[in-house]
């Protein structure tokens, strides 16, 4: 109870974390409640009359191919989030392992890992993802999509976590632990990890955000899973049918609102976690 109150009072002060969490919770609620009222099967084409503006029957209207847009949003939001979370977790997982290896063993290992990450970051990620997506198969599943995005998602975490590990090393208590006879893994899990947790969490959230951005990018280009009603795919059809110019506002407003909410939510959570990881910023905000 006491702990709960402490958490509450902290989130009261850490406004960014609070706002971000609320935004993401709102999305989860939308999906959960939506699922109770809507059949996600209606997210397929030809399940409704085409191009109806919002009405009692179709609260979000329908698109040109006869998809119920509310069903598309309810079905698509979790798909987009799933891609983001799978790729984000994989990215930070791989990145953390590489970063700890590099920061811990230093020397040659570190040079190689750092160079690979730095060179990889110079390359525009989306283009490589496009090349991979085009090369592999004509149509992808949502999970395959997540894996493709994950193939580059480890670069940034590797770089940033490595820098943190190195600063922690400088503080000397790692040396102290090594002198007191702790092994490499023990030091990583008992000494480094706890200190890095808020930082890792912030990195994770921003990686999820980056992965969602990349996946939506691929989908908008028409390289996503064609038969899954993802948010990016909806925007692909919006662009394809020039819905903007034709005044079919109900087609593009919901996906944009949801995507903006996702990114804002993740952004605020990252800011909030950064504040925890980096108390110096606390004063200046």
């Amino acid at each position: 109870m006491n702990a709960l109150r402490r958490v509450m009072s902290y989130t009261g002060r850490n406004r960014s974390l609070l706002v971000g969490t609320l935004l993401l919770l709102a999305l989860v609620l939308f999906v959960v409640i939506g699922r109770m009222f809507v059949d996600t099967e209606d997210a397929r084409a030809l399940s409704a009359p085409s191009l109806r503006p919002p009405s009692w029957d179709y609260p979000f209207g329908t698109d040109r191919q006869g998809r119920d847009l509310l069903a598309v949003m309810v079905a698509g939001t979790p798909l987009t989030l799933r891609i983001g979370f799978i790729a984000g977790f994989l990215g930070v997982g791989i990145g953390a392992v590489l970063a700890f290896t590099a920061g811990f063993y230093r020397g040659m290992t570190d040079t190689i890992i750092r160079s690979v990450a730095d060179i990889g970051l110079t390359v525009p990620g989306l283009l490589v993802l496009i090349l991979i997506a085009v090369s592999i198969k004509s149509s992808l599943t949502v999970n395959e999509m997540a894996l493709i995005v994950a193939s580059l998602a480890w670069l940034n975490p590797t770089r940033t976590i490595r820098a943190q590990v190195l600063t922690l090393r400088e503080r000397g208590y790692v040396e102290l632990a090594a002198m007191s006879g702790m092994g490499g893994l023990e030091i990583i899990f008992l000494e480094l990890m706890p200190n890095l947790l808020p930082y890792l969490a912030a990195t994770l959230v921003s990686s999820v955000s980056a992965a969602i951005l990349a996946s939506i990018g691929l989908e908008v280009l028409g390289l996503g899973p064609m038969d899954a009603p993802t948010l990016g795919m909806t925007l692909y059809w919006v662009n394809f049918n020039a819905a903007m110019i034709n005044g079919w506002w109900w087609w593009w407003v919901p996906p944009i609102v949801i995507i903006v909410t996702v990114f804002l939510g993740l952004f605020f959570v990252t800011m909030g976690l950064d504040e925890i990881a980096n108390p110096r910023l606390r004063k200046s905000t």
Partner: peptide, 22 residues
């Protein structure tokens, strides 16, 4: 400006198209 920073370029572009071109 920070809130905008969280949004992808192209999504903001779509909004600009709607506002200033449509």
């Amino acid at each position: 400006l920070w809130a905008l920073h969280a949004i992808p370029f192209f999504l903001f572009g779509l909004i600009l198209i709607y506002l200033f071109a449509f």
